[in-house]
Design a protein around this nucleic acid. Structure first.
Lengths: 141, 141
DNA sequence: TCTATTTTGGTACTAAAGTATGAATGCTAA
DNA sequence: TTAGCATTCATACTTTAGTACCAAAATAGA
């Protein structure tokens, strides 16, 4: 929690330094232009890295991935329908076919049909594999 | 899978551009030095942002948590044995009991015994739930 | 050494999961 | 409107999964 402050301090110091540098630019013409450019480049590269890290300020929170974005392109590519995806999601929560059926207000037969088609499309033979693969393909969180 | 290539291409183009810029630096002295510096700064800021994004985008591919640390405390707390943990791991890869048995050089009976005990200790009734819970408890990657 | 746990395996069932096939309905885009 | 999916459901069957109970080894600990 002290890091941000430290970095802000560094940034401010860097900016001030850069400004002063510009200020005194005309008095240090003895420095070769290449070195000057190198320093500018280095500074702004570091600055850019810092900004980049700030922009995506997400830490590897290990298990909980709340930054999940469904890959709809992949869904279409595999031809997975809305309902099949529903089944897939509930499946991943550890529900049985009967429980899934109850949640979706359909019969177990329907769930079985969906899951069977799902396994074909995902090219797997078990629900555990389906869940694993679906996660890898960003089809479920 | 095409993104990285695209980005690499962009980077290369940018570098080449920068080099050419340096090359022709002496022929465009009519540009004010401030503008010149601004361009350099902008380029390297973008470059830095890109590098920064690359640095952290290595990991958060959501599913692949290589920063996995087994919670052995939890294992002991739940009384999960070595062999049960083995079964759990293979289970999470989507293998059937028979396949797990083959990998561990034991019979399906043994795997069933292990998995049954596992479900009791994890307080679940299905392998899909076991996998989910085990991940939450940091027992498997 | 002796006990407690682990690991292994078996039998016998029950319950789910998964496959195959067929069929009716509903929605949608040519 | 018609062909084509998507969705729904059913029957029948095969295969896994999971439970219950028991029991013999192997192993680790006191």
């Amino acid at each position: 929690m002290k890091k941000p402050i430290f970095i802000y301090g560094l940034l401010l110091a860097g900016l001030v330094g850069a400004l002063k540098f510009l200020e005194y630019r005309f008095f240090i013409r003895d420095l070769s232009i290449e070195i000057y450019i190198g320093i500018i480049a280095a500074f702004f590269t570091v600055f850019g890295i810092w900004v980049g890290l700030k922009l995506i300020n997400k830490k590897p929170t290990s298990t909980s991935n709340e930054n999940f974005m469904l890959d709809e392109t992949m869904l279409k590519k595999l031809g997975i329908s809305k309902r099949e995806h529903d089944v897939l999601e509930l499946m991943a929560t550890g529900l049985s076919n009967q429980e899934i059926a109850d949640k979706l207000f359909v019969t177990v037969s329907t769930v079985k049909t969906h899951s069977s088609n799902l396994f074909l499309k995902l090219d797997v033979q078990r629900r555990t594999q389906a869940i694993k693969k679906a996660k890898e393909l960003q089809l479920i969180p």
